[in-house]
Amino acid sequence: MENLRDILAKARRVVLRKGISPQDAEDIVQSAYTRVHAFEQREIVRSQEALLITAAVRLAYDERRRQDRAAMFEKVDEVPSVADDAPLPDEILRAQQRTARLKEGLDRLPERTRRILLSRRLDGLTYKQIAQIEGSTEAAIEKQVARATLELMNWVNGW
């Protein structure tokens, strides 16, 4: 019969072929040996080598399953957290209220001032283009847009 050192080395090689790391293989073979030795105290063993290798292989399978499950959880941990960019319900409500307040403020502006402001802010026309359309100077349009903007800001913020 082979000596114990040769049996342990053979069990280690078998465990390594199962895809277990060398360090874990040492632990598995040691655990298998401890279990086989305890079993030998209670029962008669015909082949210590066969029992040790079988126990080591089963422990290696258990270890692989444990590693696979752990890898599954590691992958879950690696998923980047995705922030929800959607506004909160109270933020939506406040924005709707501000928009309604802004509409009220726009309705209070004189027709020409409202038309000039919306041409600049919504349509993206330049002061020069608006001045040509309205038959006014660029400076006058700039002042009118500035005053209307200030009036609307005060109207919305004063609420």
Rank of each mutant, 00 (worst) to 15 (best):
V14N: 06
L16S: 08
R42M: 08
R101W: 02
R35M: 11
F73L: 15
L88E: 14
R64P: 03
R98T: 04
S31V: 07
R65P: 00
I20D: 03
M72W: 11
T34S: 11
G105A: 14
R46P: 05
Q67Y: 01
Q96E: 02
V36Y: 04
V45N: 10
R46T: 10
L93Y: 00
T99A: 09
L59N: 07
A83D: 10
D68F: 01
E26W: 06
K75P: 05
R65A: 10
D24H: 05
P87R: 10
K103R: 15
A32S: 12
E104Q: 15
R64W: 02
R65H: 07
A71R: 13
D27G: 09
E74T: 14
D77Y: 03
R65L: 07
E78H: 11
L51R: 00
G19D: 00
R66D: 05
F73A: 07
D90Y: 05
A83G: 11
Y61L: 13
A32R: 08
D85L: 15
K18A: 13
E63H: 14
R101T: 02
D27K: 10
Q97V: 04
A100D: 01
R98N: 12
A95V: 03
Y33L: 14
G19V: 08
P80K: 13
I92G: 00
R12F: 10
G105Q: 03
L52F: 04
Q41K: 15
R42N: 06
A86T: 14
V36S: 06
R64V: 09
E104F: 03
L59Y: 10
L88S: 00
Q97F: 01
R66K: 04
A71W: 00
R98P: 00
A38F: 07
P22G: 13
I20F: 02
D90N: 06
A32L: 08
R46L: 12
V45Q: 08
H37V: 15
V36E: 03
D85C: 04
Q96P: 00
R69S: 00
R64Q: 07
E40P: 04
K18G: 07
L102K: 13
R12K: 13
R64L: 15
E26C: 06
R94F: 01
R65F: 02
R58L: 15
S81K: 10
A56W: 03
P87Y: 00
